[in-house]
Design a protein around this nucleic acid. Structure first.
Lengths: 344, 344
DNA sequence: TCCAGTAGTGCTAACGTTAGCATGAGGTGG
DNA sequence: CCACCTCATGCTAACGTTAGCACTACTGGA
């Protein structure tokens, strides 16, 4: 690898001069700068950021720690972040936790060893104590999920309100047996969404046993399929279903299509998130849309500013986005239309 | 930030002893090791990889340079890579080019400055000369697309054969007016797929004007919608459509659903790639499935081995995967069934 | 003529870690 | 009792870059 020293020797100048010429120091004559740049280019010199970091410069890498990049929810966030940070000269590191706290810890250790400038994290249900310690030493912000022990910046969705609205929509249509499928209660988001669901039932004057809930680890399409089979096979099948997880929604849609369940005739469905395909599934999926792009951009801008300026810590910043119900064809009063979701 | 020196001072030993204790050097007594580890843990010491890199150690970061992570094709690759590399202690850097050669160059410059251990790249149509130079200095492999000037390792799909099969399927069904939509010919993949399409028409004994082609930058769903509108509005509409891009396919499906085109009655469709949702779109989308996971795993393993061992350069390695036609309901003889893709 | 100022460049130390060599204590065998 | 060996640790240099200070050769003013 070519160093400033190699360039210096070739030109018969000192390393200092080369370094200064490359950083466009005003003290260096234009002629020297030109010669240095010329030589650097010819020799294929590329500055060594590791060396620069040792002199106190900070890294230009921000890490995104998420459960699974295949979830288009997270890939959209990754894209938006990457786009916003590129303008500021930052690179994006991607760490997938698979919702495993030990994997999360391993990643945070690596990120810390690599001295990343900042971290944007969707924490696992119960991060390891060491993960919390490490995060405390790093400029970071929590996305979507908020771990209480961390007490730091958070960009999230009003999960409670989102599911309250989704459920209320079904209650207003006249449904009285409504099922909910979402992530586990351990996850802050899972708990909030469930609370929103139950709250809406209560507000609608429905009895406690009107709601039936299935909580699954949310990161798997397959769990959505299995939960759906249980729902359909069980006794006293509900007339409506609300979802609190995008991955589960994908599984539900597959299973309902496969089994040829009539939507919204036999079952009204409100999905979660808005993936490509939700609009063309069966009669079109009514779903809880989330302002992902705006959130991601918000995160990027906040972190960029945080990294460029001093900590200026006047308490943790919090930003709560609102979901919005996207009305399509998959919801109707109980026993109304009979559009099928299957292939007919 | 805590350094080995801080630990050394606290314990009254030298930095060497600390460094050796932490790297489990057999020359250090067990008692000292214990005390050092204890102190390191208490003080929250995290090794500085930048410093280690300066002593000749290589980085543990591999970069993935792709057009757009939102494309689930690439997010699947990113996931699989990340998973495979994690076992070997590598981290993944994500660089999106948006198919812009200047953005690609900027990323490669950054990656090089950060001294990433290796690069997995889906090159843009015509990489900048400097990008080629930079890649030559880095352990890397090309994915999907192969830039001739680079002449390096390549993991790709037999694009020609994939589209030949997809098109042949339609020819066998009796279609004589077949349209193709894919990426631009500048892209190696675009050119190969188009060649496969034309080849299949020729083999099927169809006249040259039987095929109608629309080439668009592939990275946009919106282009797919626009191309579909042009196709449907134009005179002499084809009875079948083959696709050579996942993103275009997504747009096509949306537009066909919206316009209520009867598939496969009015139009038979063969998609490209296999996204969640393709199976439940209209009558189920017949599509060209790609062995993404296997490819990604192959890449990861190859690069890991390449990084762990010496260059052992006995010519560039090449791996060609085969696509496979996934038969669903969206293809039929011309004018046969009349299942609709719309909401009815 | 001499000094101050300035433009342009060089020297050196420092960042945190590691590897090679040096050191010193203690033990063993001749 | 000394030579030699081993064990445990210390010292120092080096990686590539940058910043502070030092130095030289001019220029211009007194």
């Amino acid at each position: 690898m070519i160093t400033t020293r190699d360039i210096a020797e070739r030109l018969g100048v000192s390393v200092s001069t080369v370094g200064r010429a490359l950083s466009d120091d005003p003290r260096i004559s234009e002629e020297t700068k030109f010669r240095v740049r010329q030589a650097a280019s010819e020799m294929g010199y590329v500055g060594n950021r590791a060396a620069r970091m040792m002199r106190g410069a900070s890294s230009n890498v921000v890490a995104l720690v998420i459960p699974d990049i295949r979830n288009s929810f997270y890939s959209t966030i990754a894209h938006q972040l990457s786009k916003n940070m590129q303008a500021e000269g930052f690179q994006l590191m991607l760490s997938e936790t698979d919702d495993d706290r030990m994997v999360e810890l391993r990643h945070l250790r690596e990120l810390s060893a690599n001295r990343v400038a900042g971290v944007i994290i969707v924490p696992t249900a119960r991060p390891h104590g060491d993960s919390v310690k490490l995060l405390r030493t790093l400029p970071h912000l929590q996305l979507l999920r908020r771990h209480p022990a961390l007490g730091s910046q958070w960009f999230g969705v009003d999960d409670h309100e989102a599911l309250r609205q989704a459920t209320a929509h079904l209650v207003e249509l006249g449904h009285t047996r409504i099922a909910y499928m979402g992530g586990p209660e351990e996850l802050p988001t899972g708990a909030e969404r469930l609370r929103g669901f139950r709250g809406a039932l209560r507000e609608g004057g429905l009895p406690d046993d009107a709601g039936r809930t299935e909580l699954w680890p949310p990161s798997s399409v397959d769990h959505g399929r299995r939960a759906t089979r249980r729902l359909l096979d069980g006794p006293d099948a509900p007339t409506a279903l609300v979802l609190g997880s995008t991955q589960l929604t994908l599984g539900v849609l597959e299973e309902l299509s496969e089994q040829g369940v009539k939507v919204p005739g036999e079952l009204s469905v409100v999905g979660f998130g808005d993936e490509p395909g939700f609009s063309w599934w069966g009669p079109g999926l009514t779903t809880t849309g989330l302002p992902i792009q705006e959130m991601a951009t918000g995160c990027a801008l906040w972190l960029m500013r945080r990294l460029k300026t001093k900590p200026d810590n006047d308490g943790p910043y919090t930003s709560v986005s609102l979901g919005s119900l996207v009305l399509r064809g998959s919801t109707a009063p109980p026993g109304a239309a009979t559009t099928t979701s299957g292939r007919g």
